[in-house]
């Protein structure tokens, strides 16, 4: 307890993926999807869907929310993570996100700031309350587990359209809705996946399910999203996301709550100096 020999990266190394959760929550605007009626290649159709989904997430300005992660192993033993999130949309560049950890208690007060960029890697800073230190950290780490959960970095990175190759597969009924099923192949060689299959409903392009196949093309994980709510008349936001690992039998349930759009945030909170008073 005397301050580490050098700065602990207990959560810093893996924290970056939380930014990503924002991308995976399936924020989507309530506008009709643009699905071409004309016959076109499966590649183009898949790409068009991805672009459309991206566009629907824009214009939200700011929001705040709480996240709870429930980690469950094969024996059913559970552990919890709790954190609060603030996001500020910026004009002409990527979003700015601020995360403050409440649980586990040994990382309480740790805060994490991401300045996303449309071109190039994110800028990321970590605030370590024990040392009152703001530390710039690498954003290159894309794979691996976040705080022991079944969510990996790349599962959660806001799915940049350009990071995948797409293949439209089919439309099929999913409940009362119709889902469009697209296969996407990561272009990044560091990805842990060979391919992913994504289910989005044709009405609002909300993400409902993703299957992740590992490099040997075995089904590794399945993400299931549920309880979408519409905010500010425009944005669909999921309240629950569950990732199941089929190899280990472990699962992680991520719940969102206290969601507030256009919340009282100031740009200063999203500066490295503002990070020092995050709590």
């Amino acid at each position: 307890m005397n301050g580490p020999l050098f700065t602990s990266c207990r959560i810093g190394c893996r924290i970056g993926c939380m930014a990503a959760l924002l991308g995976a929550v399936g924020l989507a605007a309530a506008a009709p999807p643009v699905l071409a009626g004309e016959p076109e290649s499966a590649e183009n159709r898949g790409l068009a869907i991805a672009r459309d989904a991206r566009e629907r997430k824009q214009g939200f300005e700011s929001f705040t929310a709480s996240q709870t992660m429930l980690l469950r192993n094969r024996q059913g033993r559970e552990s919890r993570r709790h954190l609060r999130v603030k996001v500020l949309e910026t004009e002409g560049d990527g979003d700015r996100s601020l995360f403050v950890f409440d649980e586990p208690r040994d990382v309480r007060g740790t805060a994490f700031l991401v300045h996303g960029h449309k071109d190039g890697p994110d800028d990321q800073w970590l605030y370590l309350p024990a040392l009152k230190r703001v530390k710039r950290i690498n954003s290159a780490n894309r794979s691996g587990s976040f705080m022991g959960s079944e969510f990996a970095y790349e599962d959660m990175t806001p799915p940049e359209v350009e990071q995948f190759h797409y293949q439209y597969l089919r439309d099929e009924a999913c409940g009362e809705l119709t889902c469009t099923v697209v296969e996407r192949t990561p272009l990044d060689p560091r990805s842990g996946y060979r391919r992913q299959i994504v289910w989005q409903d044709t009405d609002e392009l909300r993400l409902w399910k993703v299957e992740y196949y590992d490099q040997r093309d075995d089904l590794l994980k399945t993400l299931v999203v549920r309880d979408y709510e519409l905010y500010v008349d425009r944005y669909w936001h999921a309240a629950e996301m569950t990732m199941v690992n089929h190899l280990t039998g472990k699962s992680t349930m991520l719940s969102w709550s206290d969601y507030e759009f256009r919340a009282a945030v100031t740009p200063g909170e999203f500066l490295p100096t503002g990070l020092r008073r995050a709590r």
């Binding site: 009924a173 809705l177 409902w208 299931v224 999203v225 309880d227 979408y228 519409l230 569950t242």
Partner: peptide, 13 residues
Amino acid sequence: VTARSLPGVAQET
């Protein structure tokens, strides 16, 4: 506005 337990996939966790 809520959209709970959507399409088929929700039960298949």
